[in-house]
């Protein structure tokens, strides 16, 4: 039983490691503990798979999102630049 303890991590720790793995390389010990846990724990296996998918979907969102195709209208740009020029001319030192 002691050995099982030694090589076991909790579901909470396993999800922590799955999170960490997305950002940086795990130590060999962490990697083994995570692999072992995921082998025997279905919810944590789902968790890892799904969090990986969400992680890449956020990257896709940023490159594909409609928001990224939103632009200032030409009118709005002219208005903004005019306001900016006006404000600039009111600064005495310039």
């Amino acid at each position: 039983m002691k050995i099982v303890r030694f090589i076991s991590i909790s579901c909470k720790e396993s999800t922590q490691l799955s999170t960490k793995k997305l950002e940086q390389k795990l130590s060999w010990k962490e990697a083994i503990l995570l692999q072992f846990h995921i082998l025997i724990c279905t919810p944590c296996r789902y968790f890892q798979q799904q969090v990986n998918a969400i992680h890449s979907s956020i990257r896709n969102l940023i490159s594909n999102d409609k928001i990224l195709n939103t632009k200032l209208s030409e009118e709005k740009k002219i208005d903004m630049q005019a306001a900016l020029n006006k404000a600039q001319s009111e600064i005495p030192s310039n």
Binding site: S8, S10, P43, Q49, A53, S57, N64
Partner: peptide, 24 residues
């Protein structure tokens, strides 16, 4: 004393491949 298991209602469920494919 426990290993910090999932709360029953919080356990991740399986996402079908068709669902994963639609994440775009």
């Amino acid at each position: 004393n426990d290993f910090g298991h999932w709360q029953t209602e919080q356990k991740p469920i399986a996402w079908e491949k068709s669902i994963l494919d639609k994440m775009v």
